[in-house]
Simulated scan of single mutants.
Amino acid sequence: MSTQPPTEHRCAKCNRLLRNPSPDGLGPKCRRMIRRAGKAPEIVNGYKPHQVEKAVENLRQGGVALLRKSSKNRVYVVVGSDGTNAYRTARAACTCPAGLRAKHVCWHRIAAHIFDLAS
């Protein structure tokens, strides 16, 4: 009989200890803030609806994690829609193929924008 210590689960946004782990990795307060930010006028009016929908779905599934927090900007790791690739993303740039071409704002950047607004 092996006795392993209980696993600590922390919120992906604020790093607080979670009593009950959730599939998205967020605590209840952070989840509410992200839902509100996803409905903010600057998100809804600033981007294409299908991209906002993809970004919100990715946030709901826990596909965004803070990689680096600096005084000027935050860098996130965002899991791609196929689940096999992860991209370094900030509000200004993304390492996905669409982000590297920089013709349009990719949904990874929208997810980072929503995450930033929820702060």
Rank of each mutant, 00 (worst) to 15 (best):
H9V: 14
R10H: 13
R10F: 04
C11K: 08
C11W: 01
A12I: 06
A12T: 11
A12Y: 03
K13T: 08
C14H: 00
N15S: 12
N15G: 00
N15T: 09
R16K: 09
L17K: 08
L17P: 00
L18I: 11
L18F: 02
N20F: 09
N20I: 15
N20S: 11
N20R: 14
P21L: 02
P21M: 10
P21E: 05
S22H: 06
S22M: 05
P23D: 08
D24K: 02
G25P: 02
G25C: 07
G25L: 10
L26C: 06
L26A: 01
L26W: 00
L26N: 02
G27H: 01
G27N: 03
P28S: 12
P28L: 10
K29V: 12
K29D: 09
C30R: 00
R32V: 05
R32N: 06
R32P: 00
R32C: 01
R32K: 11
R32H: 11
I34S: 06
I34C: 03
R35W: 03
R36V: 10
R36K: 14
R36C: 04
A37M: 08
A37V: 11
A37H: 10
G38E: 10
G38P: 10
K39F: 07
A40C: 06
A40Y: 01
P41T: 11
P41Y: 03
E42L: 06
E42R: 11
E42C: 11
E42K: 06
V44K: 10
V44E: 05
N45V: 04
N45R: 14
G46M: 07
G46W: 00
G46V: 04
G46K: 01
Y47V: 12
Y47H: 15
Y47A: 07
Y47C: 02
K48Q: 14
K48M: 07
K48A: 14
Q51E: 13
Q51H: 13
E53G: 07
K54L: 13
K54A: 13
K54G: 00
V56R: 14
V56D: 01
V56M: 09
V56N: 01
V56P: 04
E57V: 08
N58F: 09
N58I: 10
N58G: 14
L59V: 07
L59W: 00
G62Q: 13
G62E: 13
G62P: 06
G63A: 13
G63M: 11
G63L: 09
V64S: 09
L66H: 01
L66I: 15
L67M: 09
L67P: 00
L67S: 11
L67W: 14
L67F: 12
R68Q: 15
R68M: 12
R68A: 05
R68I: 12
K69W: 02
S70I: 02
S71K: 15
K72D: 14
K72E: 12
N73A: 14
N73K: 15
N73V: 10
R74M: 07
R74A: 09
R74Y: 05
Y76T: 09
V77I: 13
V78E: 06
V78C: 08
V78L: 03
V79C: 07
G80P: 04
G80T: 06
S81Q: 13
D82E: 13
D82Y: 03
G83E: 05
T84L: 15
T84D: 12
N85T: 06
A86C: 07
Y87G: 11
R88Y: 03
T89H: 03
T89D: 05
A90P: 00
R91A: 10
R91E: 12
R91S: 04
R91Q: 09
R91F: 01
A92T: 05
A92Q: 05
A92V: 04
A92G: 03
